[in-house]
Simulated scan of single mutants.
Amino acid sequence: MNLYPADIEAMAARIIAAFGARRLTLATAESCTGGLIVGALTEISGSSAVVDRGFVTYSNQAKIDLLGVGPETLERYGAVSRQTAMEMVEGALERSGCGVAVAVTGIAGPDGGTAEKPVGLVHLAARSRNGARLHREMRYGDISRSEIRLATVRTALEMLIEAAG
């Protein structure tokens, strides 16, 4: 039995193989996915050589305490924002010593959306020590909570590959 859909497992395997060959390590900082990204990566044999840590920072306080997100950032822009995602990925990179990190924050629903920040809105950020800095604003739509979370995992894995160059 597989925990994840085949396409996610294939992407995770590709990352573990590519990062392992380059001796790159990675960290994740997750809010709306609650650890699903690091879970997909650690589902792959050999992941211990690549995956250093995963920060699950579901609450604002966790984002502040574990990743160093500024309280003023959360107050001004909200947890689901480009600014927060970028501070999350910076914190993950700084606090882990890894070569690459990815961060996600969003509204998985079915509640919590507003006209300005609807259900399905997710901000993702990836960064590498070689200088890559990526951000994506995804609007997956009002699909199921599980579908939003898995779509976010897919996008995050793509961004890890892109950030690593």
Rank of each mutant, 00 (worst) to 15 (best):
F19R: 03
R95Q: 07
G78C: 05
E94A: 15
Y4A: 08
E30C: 06
R139L: 08
M159H: 07
A40K: 06
F19D: 00
G20D: 11
S45E: 12
A85Q: 05
C98N: 04
A108T: 12
G35A: 08
F55D: 00
V80P: 04
M11V: 01
G78H: 10
S48C: 01
P110Q: 12
E137G: 05
Y77L: 03
R149L: 01
R53Q: 00
M11T: 05
L160G: 10
E158L: 13
I37C: 00
R127N: 11
M11F: 00
G54A: 12
P110W: 08
V89G: 07
T28M: 10
A6Y: 12
R23W: 15
A103H: 14
C98R: 02
A13S: 10
L41I: 13
T73K: 09
G68M: 03
R23Y: 13
R76L: 02
L41E: 06
Y140R: 01
V119F: 08
L124Y: 00
Q61C: 11
A27T: 06
L150F: 05
M86K: 03
E137T: 13
L93C: 08
A27E: 02
I161W: 04
S48F: 10
A126K: 11
T84C: 15
N130T: 11
L93G: 09
P110C: 12
G112N: 11
T57Y: 03
E137S: 11
V38P: 02
V153R: 01
N130A: 10
G120M: 00
G99K: 05
G106W: 08
K63C: 00
A115E: 14
G113V: 06
A85P: 02
R133Y: 00
A103W: 13
Q83S: 03
G109R: 01
I8W: 00
I143V: 14
T42F: 13
A103Q: 13
V51Q: 00
G109F: 03
G165P: 01
G68P: 00
D111M: 10
A163S: 14
G112I: 07
A62T: 00
G99Y: 03
A126S: 12
A125E: 09
V89I: 14
A27W: 03
